[in-house]
Design a protein around this nucleic acid. Structure first.
Length: 313
DNA sequence: AATTGCACCAACCGCTTCACA
DNA sequence: GTGTGAAGCGGTTGGTGCAAT
Protein backbone atom coordinates (compact mmCIF):
# COMPACT_ATOMS: atom_id res chain seq x y z
CA UNK A 1 0.00 0.00 0.00
CA UNK A 2 1.31 3.37 -0.93
CA UNK A 3 4.35 1.96 -2.61
CA UNK A 4 5.33 4.18 -5.50
CA UNK A 5 5.04 2.63 -8.96
CA UNK A 6 8.35 1.36 -10.22
CA UNK A 7 7.92 3.16 -13.52
CA UNK A 8 7.36 6.63 -12.16
CA UNK A 9 11.01 7.53 -12.24
CA UNK A 10 12.02 10.36 -14.50
CA UNK A 11 13.73 9.18 -17.66
CA UNK A 12 12.10 5.79 -17.74
CA UNK A 13 11.04 5.11 -21.28
CA UNK A 14 7.60 3.80 -22.09
CA UNK A 15 5.93 2.56 -25.21
CA UNK A 16 6.98 0.13 -27.89
CA UNK A 17 10.39 -1.45 -27.76
CA UNK A 18 12.95 -0.82 -30.45
CA UNK A 19 15.04 -3.64 -31.93
CA UNK A 20 18.08 -2.13 -30.27
CA UNK A 21 16.45 -2.37 -26.87
CA UNK A 22 15.43 -5.94 -27.63
CA UNK A 23 18.98 -6.83 -28.50
CA UNK A 24 20.24 -5.28 -25.30
CA UNK A 25 17.71 -7.23 -23.31
CA UNK A 26 18.43 -10.53 -25.02
CA UNK A 27 22.10 -9.88 -24.56
CA UNK A 28 21.53 -9.41 -20.86
CA UNK A 29 19.53 -12.61 -20.55
CA UNK A 30 22.11 -14.55 -22.46
CA UNK A 31 24.78 -13.34 -20.12
CA UNK A 32 22.99 -13.34 -16.79
CA UNK A 33 19.95 -15.49 -17.31
CA UNK A 34 16.35 -14.43 -17.04
CA UNK A 35 15.82 -13.03 -13.61
CA UNK A 36 16.94 -10.26 -11.34
CA UNK A 37 14.97 -7.88 -13.52
CA UNK A 38 15.61 -5.09 -11.12
CA UNK A 39 19.20 -5.08 -12.22
CA UNK A 40 18.50 -5.07 -15.94
CA UNK A 41 18.23 -1.31 -16.46
CA UNK A 42 21.40 -0.72 -14.48
CA UNK A 43 23.44 -3.40 -16.17
CA UNK A 44 22.21 -2.94 -19.72
CA UNK A 45 21.69 0.78 -19.68
CA UNK A 46 18.16 0.31 -20.84
CA UNK A 47 15.91 3.13 -19.80
CA UNK A 48 13.09 0.77 -19.03
CA UNK A 49 11.63 -0.28 -15.75
CA UNK A 50 12.28 -3.81 -14.58
CA UNK A 51 8.70 -4.84 -15.08
CA UNK A 52 8.74 -3.68 -18.64
CA UNK A 53 11.91 -5.67 -19.27
CA UNK A 54 10.47 -8.81 -17.76
CA UNK A 55 7.28 -8.43 -19.75
CA UNK A 56 9.12 -7.85 -22.97
CA UNK A 57 11.19 -10.94 -22.41
CA UNK A 58 8.37 -13.23 -21.38
CA UNK A 59 5.95 -12.06 -24.03
CA UNK A 60 8.14 -11.56 -27.06
CA UNK A 61 11.78 -12.37 -26.76
CA UNK A 62 11.69 -15.60 -24.82
CA UNK A 63 12.57 -18.60 -26.99
CA UNK A 64 9.78 -20.93 -27.95
CA UNK A 65 7.09 -18.36 -28.46
CA UNK A 66 4.84 -19.05 -31.36
CA UNK A 67 3.40 -16.11 -33.23
CA UNK A 68 0.62 -15.90 -35.70
CA UNK A 69 -2.97 -16.95 -35.65
CA UNK A 70 -4.28 -19.53 -33.26
CA UNK A 71 -5.11 -22.96 -34.57
CA UNK A 72 -8.44 -24.67 -34.02
CA UNK A 73 -6.74 -26.96 -31.57
CA UNK A 74 -5.37 -24.08 -29.56
CA UNK A 75 -8.69 -22.33 -29.69
CA UNK A 76 -10.51 -25.32 -28.30
CA UNK A 77 -7.90 -25.77 -25.64
CA UNK A 78 -8.31 -22.19 -24.53
CA UNK A 79 -12.07 -22.39 -24.41
CA UNK A 80 -12.02 -25.55 -22.37
CA UNK A 81 -9.32 -24.41 -20.05
CA UNK A 82 -11.00 -21.07 -19.55
CA UNK A 83 -14.14 -22.93 -18.54
CA UNK A 84 -12.08 -24.96 -16.15
CA UNK A 85 -9.76 -22.36 -14.71
CA UNK A 86 -11.48 -19.07 -15.32
CA UNK A 87 -9.36 -16.12 -16.34
CA UNK A 88 -6.19 -17.70 -15.04
CA UNK A 89 -4.29 -16.87 -18.16
CA UNK A 90 -0.94 -17.92 -16.84
CA UNK A 91 -2.34 -21.30 -15.89
CA UNK A 92 -3.99 -21.66 -19.27
CA UNK A 93 -0.79 -20.64 -20.98
CA UNK A 94 1.01 -23.45 -19.21
CA UNK A 95 -0.95 -25.87 -21.38
CA UNK A 96 -0.02 -23.95 -24.51
CA UNK A 97 3.70 -23.60 -23.96
CA UNK A 98 4.31 -21.71 -27.16
CA UNK A 99 1.76 -19.04 -26.31
CA UNK A 100 2.05 -16.34 -23.71
CA UNK A 101 -0.60 -15.54 -21.20
CA UNK A 102 -0.88 -12.10 -22.71
CA UNK A 103 -1.48 -13.58 -26.13
CA UNK A 104 -4.12 -15.92 -24.84
CA UNK A 105 -5.77 -13.19 -22.87
CA UNK A 106 -5.89 -10.94 -25.91
CA UNK A 107 -7.19 -13.72 -28.09
CA UNK A 108 -9.87 -14.53 -25.59
CA UNK A 109 -10.98 -10.95 -25.25
CA UNK A 110 -10.96 -10.17 -28.94
CA UNK A 111 -12.07 -13.42 -30.54
CA UNK A 112 -13.31 -16.17 -28.32
CA UNK A 113 -15.49 -14.11 -26.04
CA UNK A 114 -17.45 -12.85 -29.00
CA UNK A 115 -17.51 -16.23 -30.64
CA UNK A 116 -18.92 -17.93 -27.60
CA UNK A 117 -21.40 -15.17 -27.00
CA UNK A 118 -22.60 -15.51 -30.53
CA UNK A 119 -22.94 -19.24 -30.16
CA UNK A 120 -24.79 -18.88 -26.88
CA UNK A 121 -27.19 -16.39 -28.36
CA UNK A 122 -27.66 -18.48 -31.43
CA UNK A 123 -28.28 -21.78 -29.70
CA UNK A 124 -29.99 -20.39 -26.63
CA UNK A 125 -27.59 -22.33 -24.47
CA UNK A 126 -26.72 -20.83 -21.17
CA UNK A 127 -23.15 -21.44 -20.34
CA UNK A 128 -22.49 -22.61 -16.84
CA UNK A 129 -19.42 -20.49 -16.84
CA UNK A 130 -19.39 -16.79 -16.95
CA UNK A 131 -16.62 -14.61 -18.22
CA UNK A 132 -14.56 -15.37 -15.22
CA UNK A 133 -15.12 -19.08 -15.30
CA UNK A 134 -16.72 -21.50 -12.90
CA UNK A 135 -15.21 -19.94 -9.85
CA UNK A 136 -17.15 -16.76 -10.38
CA UNK A 137 -20.34 -18.27 -9.05
CA UNK A 138 -19.15 -17.92 -5.51
CA UNK A 139 -19.21 -14.19 -5.83
CA UNK A 140 -22.98 -14.11 -5.76
CA UNK A 141 -24.77 -13.79 -2.50
CA UNK A 142 -25.96 -17.32 -1.98
CA UNK A 143 -26.12 -19.64 0.96
CA UNK A 144 -23.21 -21.86 1.80
CA UNK A 145 -25.17 -24.95 0.85
CA UNK A 146 -26.12 -23.48 -2.47
CA UNK A 147 -22.59 -22.41 -3.07
CA UNK A 148 -21.26 -25.85 -2.26
CA UNK A 149 -23.72 -27.50 -4.60
CA UNK A 150 -22.79 -25.09 -7.32
CA UNK A 151 -19.18 -25.67 -6.61
CA UNK A 152 -19.65 -29.41 -6.95
CA UNK A 153 -21.45 -28.83 -10.21
CA UNK A 154 -18.69 -26.54 -11.34
CA UNK A 155 -16.10 -29.11 -10.44
CA UNK A 156 -17.88 -31.70 -12.53
CA UNK A 157 -18.02 -29.27 -15.40
CA UNK A 158 -14.41 -28.47 -14.83
CA UNK A 159 -13.43 -32.11 -14.88
CA UNK A 160 -15.22 -32.53 -18.14
CA UNK A 161 -13.51 -29.48 -19.51
CA UNK A 162 -10.09 -30.63 -18.44
CA UNK A 163 -10.61 -34.01 -19.97
CA UNK A 164 -11.75 -32.27 -23.08
CA UNK A 165 -8.71 -30.16 -23.21
CA UNK A 166 -6.30 -32.94 -22.53
CA UNK A 167 -7.98 -35.27 -24.97
CA UNK A 168 -6.47 -33.23 -27.76
CA UNK A 169 -3.14 -34.51 -26.71
CA UNK A 170 -4.22 -37.95 -27.80
CA UNK A 171 -5.23 -36.94 -31.26
CA UNK A 172 -2.81 -37.59 -34.09
CA UNK A 173 -0.75 -34.64 -35.06
CA UNK A 174 -1.22 -32.84 -31.82
CA UNK A 175 1.93 -33.97 -30.17
CA UNK A 176 4.11 -31.16 -31.25
CA UNK A 177 3.72 -27.57 -32.20
CA UNK A 178 2.30 -28.44 -35.57
CA UNK A 179 -1.31 -28.17 -36.33
CA UNK A 180 -3.43 -28.75 -39.36
CA UNK A 181 -0.39 -30.13 -41.06
CA UNK A 182 1.32 -26.81 -40.88
CA UNK A 183 4.91 -26.68 -39.81
CA UNK A 184 5.83 -25.47 -36.40
CA UNK A 185 6.43 -21.81 -36.08
CA UNK A 186 8.18 -21.92 -32.79
CA UNK A 187 10.42 -18.97 -32.48
CA UNK A 188 13.68 -18.55 -30.74
CA UNK A 189 14.74 -15.21 -29.41
CA UNK A 190 16.70 -14.65 -32.56
CA UNK A 191 13.67 -15.42 -34.63
CA UNK A 192 11.57 -13.09 -32.58
CA UNK A 193 14.00 -10.27 -33.02
CA UNK A 194 14.54 -11.07 -36.66
CA UNK A 195 10.82 -10.83 -37.11
CA UNK A 196 10.79 -7.51 -35.35
CA UNK A 197 13.64 -6.29 -37.47
CA UNK A 198 11.83 -7.35 -40.57
CA UNK A 199 8.89 -5.23 -39.60
CA UNK A 200 11.26 -2.52 -38.61
CA UNK A 201 12.91 -2.55 -42.00
CA UNK A 202 9.55 -2.37 -43.66
CA UNK A 203 8.59 0.66 -41.64
CA UNK A 204 11.92 2.33 -41.40
CA UNK A 205 11.72 4.83 -44.28
CA UNK A 206 8.55 6.37 -42.98
CA UNK A 207 9.57 6.13 -39.36
CA UNK A 208 12.99 7.54 -39.80
CA UNK A 209 11.51 10.38 -41.75
CA UNK A 210 9.19 11.14 -38.92
CA UNK A 211 11.78 10.70 -36.27
CA UNK A 212 13.98 13.29 -37.87
CA UNK A 213 11.09 15.69 -37.84
CA UNK A 214 10.14 15.13 -34.26
CA UNK A 215 12.13 15.97 -31.23
CA UNK A 216 13.59 13.02 -29.37
CA UNK A 217 13.81 14.75 -26.05
CA UNK A 218 10.49 13.67 -24.64
CA UNK A 219 11.08 10.11 -23.58
CA UNK A 220 8.01 9.88 -21.48
CA UNK A 221 5.63 10.74 -24.24
CA UNK A 222 3.84 7.61 -25.32
CA UNK A 223 2.94 9.11 -28.63
CA UNK A 224 6.50 10.01 -29.25
CA UNK A 225 7.55 6.54 -28.30
CA UNK A 226 5.35 5.24 -31.04
CA UNK A 227 7.79 6.85 -33.40
CA UNK A 228 10.86 4.92 -32.37
CA UNK A 229 14.23 6.29 -33.07
CA UNK A 230 17.55 4.54 -33.17
CA UNK A 231 19.60 6.39 -30.67
CA UNK A 232 23.15 5.62 -31.57
CA UNK A 233 22.78 4.17 -35.00
CA UNK A 234 19.88 6.00 -36.45
CA UNK A 235 21.22 5.75 -39.94
CA UNK A 236 21.46 2.01 -39.76
CA UNK A 237 18.83 0.00 -41.52
CA UNK A 238 16.99 -2.88 -39.97
CA UNK A 239 19.03 -5.24 -42.08
CA UNK A 240 22.20 -3.92 -40.58
CA UNK A 241 20.80 -4.41 -37.14
CA UNK A 242 19.75 -7.88 -38.04
CA UNK A 243 23.24 -8.66 -39.21
CA UNK A 244 24.68 -7.10 -36.14
CA UNK A 245 22.44 -9.24 -34.04
CA UNK A 246 23.40 -12.34 -35.91
CA UNK A 247 27.04 -11.65 -35.44
CA UNK A 248 26.48 -10.77 -31.83
CA UNK A 249 24.94 -14.10 -30.98
CA UNK A 250 26.54 -16.18 -33.66
CA UNK A 251 23.38 -17.69 -35.08
CA UNK A 252 23.56 -18.65 -38.69
CA UNK A 253 19.96 -19.37 -39.28
CA UNK A 254 16.68 -18.43 -37.73
CA UNK A 255 14.95 -21.34 -39.34
CA UNK A 256 15.75 -24.16 -36.96
CA UNK A 257 13.18 -24.01 -34.27
CA UNK A 258 14.55 -26.98 -32.40
CA UNK A 259 17.36 -24.91 -31.04
CA UNK A 260 15.06 -22.76 -29.03
CA UNK A 261 15.19 -25.03 -26.05
CA UNK A 262 18.93 -25.11 -26.11
CA UNK A 263 19.02 -21.39 -26.13
CA UNK A 264 16.53 -21.28 -23.33
CA UNK A 265 18.51 -23.65 -21.21
CA UNK A 266 21.73 -21.90 -21.87
CA UNK A 267 20.39 -18.52 -21.10
CA UNK A 268 17.73 -18.97 -18.50
CA UNK A 269 17.93 -22.27 -16.76
CA UNK A 270 15.38 -21.36 -14.16
CA UNK A 271 12.97 -19.47 -16.31
CA UNK A 272 11.05 -22.06 -18.20
CA UNK A 273 8.56 -23.69 -15.94
CA UNK A 274 6.07 -24.57 -18.60
CA UNK A 275 5.37 -28.14 -19.59
CA UNK A 276 7.51 -29.69 -22.23
CA UNK A 277 5.94 -28.68 -25.51
CA UNK A 278 7.01 -31.95 -27.02
CA UNK A 279 5.53 -34.02 -24.26
CA UNK A 280 2.49 -36.15 -24.86
CA UNK A 281 0.61 -34.70 -21.94
CA UNK A 282 1.51 -31.56 -20.08
CA UNK A 283 3.02 -32.00 -16.67
CA UNK A 284 0.12 -32.36 -14.34
CA UNK A 285 -0.33 -30.33 -11.27
CA UNK A 286 -1.83 -31.66 -8.12
CA UNK A 287 -5.15 -30.32 -9.29
CA UNK A 288 -5.06 -32.13 -12.59
CA UNK A 289 -3.87 -35.32 -10.98
CA UNK A 290 -6.69 -35.09 -8.54
CA UNK A 291 -9.16 -34.56 -11.31
CA UNK A 292 -7.76 -37.34 -13.40
CA UNK A 293 -7.48 -39.81 -10.56
CA UNK A 294 -11.20 -39.70 -10.11
CA UNK A 295 -12.14 -41.25 -13.38
CA UNK A 296 -8.94 -42.54 -14.76
CA UNK A 297 -6.96 -41.40 -17.71
CA UNK A 298 -8.63 -43.94 -20.02
CA UNK A 299 -11.47 -41.52 -20.14
CA UNK A 300 -9.33 -39.17 -22.10
CA UNK A 301 -9.14 -41.44 -25.08
CA UNK A 302 -12.87 -41.96 -25.10
CA UNK A 303 -13.85 -38.36 -25.02
CA UNK A 304 -14.36 -36.44 -28.17
CA UNK A 305 -14.68 -32.73 -28.10
CA UNK A 306 -16.40 -32.61 -31.43
CA UNK A 307 -18.87 -35.30 -30.46
CA UNK A 308 -19.67 -33.47 -27.31
CA UNK A 309 -20.02 -30.08 -28.90
CA UNK A 310 -20.75 -30.71 -32.54
CA UNK A 311 -22.09 -27.26 -33.23
CA UNK A 312 -19.54 -25.28 -31.33
CA UNK A 313 -17.17 -24.86 -34.26
C1' DA B 1 -9.92 10.62 -51.45
C1' DA B 2 -11.15 11.63 -46.85
C1' DT B 3 -13.31 10.41 -42.70
C1' DT B 4 -15.09 7.46 -39.23
C1' DG B 5 -15.53 3.37 -36.59
C1' DC B 6 -13.83 -0.83 -35.15
C1' DA B 7 -10.68 -4.68 -34.17
C1' DC B 8 -6.43 -5.99 -32.72
C1' DC B 9 -2.60 -6.27 -29.68
C1' DA B 10 1.56 -4.45 -27.28
C1' DA B 11 2.38 -2.38 -23.24
C1' DC B 12 1.17 -0.34 -18.86
C1' DC B 13 -0.79 -0.27 -14.17
C1' DG B 14 -1.82 -1.84 -9.85
C1' DC B 15 -2.81 -5.62 -6.93
C1' DT B 16 -1.34 -10.14 -5.12
C1' DT B 17 1.88 -13.60 -4.08
C1' DC B 18 6.33 -15.20 -3.04
C1' DA B 19 10.88 -15.27 -0.93
C1' DC B 20 13.86 -13.96 2.36
C1' DA B 21 15.97 -11.56 6.23
C1' DG C 1 5.57 -13.94 13.04
C1' DT C 2 6.49 -9.70 10.54
C1' DG C 3 8.20 -6.50 7.18
C1' DT C 4 10.05 -5.56 2.78
C1' DG C 5 11.31 -5.97 -1.91
C1' DA C 6 10.88 -8.58 -6.16
C1' DA C 7 8.29 -11.10 -9.29
C1' DG C 8 3.95 -12.67 -11.16
C1' DC C 9 -0.56 -11.95 -12.73
C1' DG C 10 -4.85 -10.10 -14.70
C1' DG C 11 -7.39 -6.01 -16.14
C1' DT C 12 -7.17 -2.11 -18.85
C1' DT C 13 -5.49 1.39 -22.02
C1' DG C 14 -4.03 3.50 -26.13
C1' DG C 15 -1.85 3.37 -30.75
C1' DT C 16 -2.16 1.35 -35.26
C1' DG C 17 -4.13 -0.47 -39.27
C1' DC C 18 -7.95 -1.65 -41.93
C1' DA C 19 -12.67 -1.82 -43.53
C1' DA C 20 -16.82 0.65 -44.23
C1' DT C 21 -19.06 4.79 -45.52
Amino acid sequence: MGRPPCCDKVGVKKGPWTPEEDIMLVSYVQEHGAGNWRAVPTITGLRRCSKSCRLRWTNYLRPGIKRGSFTDHEEKMIIQLQALLGNKWAAIASYLPERTDNDIKNYWNTHLKKKLKKLQNGSGHQSSTSDTGFSSSKSHSISRGQWERRLQSDINTAKQALHDALSFENTPGSLDATSNGKPSIYASSTENIARLLKGWTKNTPKLSEESTKSSSTDQNSASNAMTPSLSSNESKSGVDLSEAFESLFGFESFETSNNSDDFSRSTSPSLETKPDPNGLVPNLSVLENWLLDDQGKDYLTNFSFDDENPDLF
